[in-house]
Design a protein around this nucleic acid. Structure first.
Ligand code: NAD
Ligand code: NAD
Lengths: 210, 210
DNA sequence: TCATTAATGTGAATAATCTCACATTAGCGA
DNA sequence: TCGCTAATGTGAGATTATTCACATTAATGA
């Protein structure tokens, strides 16, 4: 089953499996079957086995998966055995809430740069110790601090312009929180986060006969 | 094409179309073809036509779609022609950032209740004027204020317990920001928001040969 | 050592989703 | 009025994703 094209959905599920497995580790669970893991993750057991089968054989037949090993295997698959450096662009309500959130560090993501245009904010030191720089210094600092991924939390009107600057600075991954579709060259991978889409989906389900 | 089962993916895309169309309205665009809209939304033109075809015929052959009409049609489909009342549970970093965000109101979502357990927070008035109540009063106030959807922004350890309380209070829709899979009866629709999954996906793409 | 067992790994079947290609039709101008 | 044009609406086909079902195999204990 090697070298097949990997479904995007598989990659996303691997993240979910990993989080659940990490919780299980905290509860001192050593081994888990695809059936039990599936129940906790809300998926089909065969789905888990198939997802993993794209990358190798990680289980023990008749036994299940060793939780600790599987976490490491999934980290390896996703490229999370190394730290990733992040830059936040836009330190408003959302950007500030995100950057102080401990969960990122826990998963190997480190903010090594933060940018804004507001003179009130530029120069300030964040709780993490990081200093907010002016967006004019974006290209220089992104290269200097080896930033891999940019998080856009500016107003929507600025998002495309920021994306352009990030691409110019050599960034290949963007997590965009602004509610616009940004255009980038193929070399750059964009993921969008938009909560209101999820709310709309709930509204639809509540309206249309549940 | 009526009365077919509607793909979940279609519902999510309708939200995206709607946002893009609203932007177009602001730019005084009256009419748009599926081709142009598709480009802006990053999808296939036939996809848009098919998505809309599940619900009726909204375009004009040879011309395109009237932007204003289509926005209204999509709102109708998604159940957004009426306001939805939200409750935020957990007014920490994330909850506070979200509740002061103007975008929700713009899309017809109104926070009518906010809950926490922290004595420092309970009783305080938010910028919107809403007062934070103790989570003990959750059931009572949710019924009283006709809340339809609950947003969980408590620590992960509390999320399941809050979900249980929301269900007991009669809530049928939950937007969960805590990084755990919560279990609810079928009558309740849950959507999860987890940014780190998106980051993992970016990490995967950056690692595996781009 | 070898049968038993339990849960994996996977080919095949099914289901869901997307894309193509084109017949259809509203609007427009001659 | 009628033909032309441009873009919709949609059946059929292609693709992608999920689930089933079972052959396979590591561990265990008699
Ligand atoms: N806050 C939320 O809960 C929330 C929810 C969903 C989406 N969003 C989106 O996230 C984005 C940020 O939301 P927010 O509530 O934090 O807004 P905000 O206004 O509080 O913050 C925006 C920040 O971006 C800075 N900024 C503006 N232009 C800039 C530029 N060119 N370069 C760098 N920085 C710049 C501003 O100075 C400000 O600090 C918006 O696009 C919003 O729609 C926010
Ligand atoms: N902040 C982020 O950027 C971010 C990002 C991703 C996910 N999340 C998740 O969102 C959740 C909240 O994150 P945060 O950074 O705002 O945390 P936080 O600690 O700042 O806020 C949590 C709030 O919940 C309240 N709370 C605790 N128990 C409660 C209960 N039983 N009932 C009601 N309120 C209760 C606390 O008093 C606090 O105000 C966490 O699950 C976190 O993992 C946060």
């Amino acid at each position: 089953m090697k070298f097949a094209k990997i479904p995007m959905a598989t990659i996303n599920r691997l993240s979910i499996y990993m989080r659940t497995l990490q919780d299980l580790l905290d509860e001192d669970v050593d081994v888990i079957s695809s059936e039990r893991l599936a129940k906790q993750c809300g998926v089909n057991p065969a789905q888990i086995r198939k997802d993993l089968a794209y990358f190798g054989e990680f289980g023990v037949r008749g036994v299940g998966y060793r939780v600790n090993d599987l976490v490491n295997q999934i980290k390896e698959i996703l490229g999370l055995q190394r730290p990733w450096n992040l830059a936040m662009i836009g330190l408003g309500n959302l950007g500030s809430a995100l950057i102080r959130h401990a969960n990122f560090v826990k998963h190997g993501y480190v903010f090594t740069a933060a940018f804004d245009v507001d003179p009130q904010k530029v120069g300030k030191r964040l709780p993490t110790g990081l200093i907010i720089n002016h967006v004019d210094e974006l290209e220089e600092l992104i290269k200097e601090r080896d930033v891999h991924v940019g998080l856009i939390t500016t107003p929507a009107s600025e998002a495309q312009s920021i994306a352009n600057q990030l691409v110019l600075a050599g960034i290949n991954g963007i997590l965009n929180f602004a509610p616009v579709q940004i255009q980038v060259p193929d070399c750059c991978h964009v993921e969008n986060v938009d909560f209101t889409i999820k709310l709309d989906s709930i509204a639809y389900h509540l309206s249309s006969g549940v």
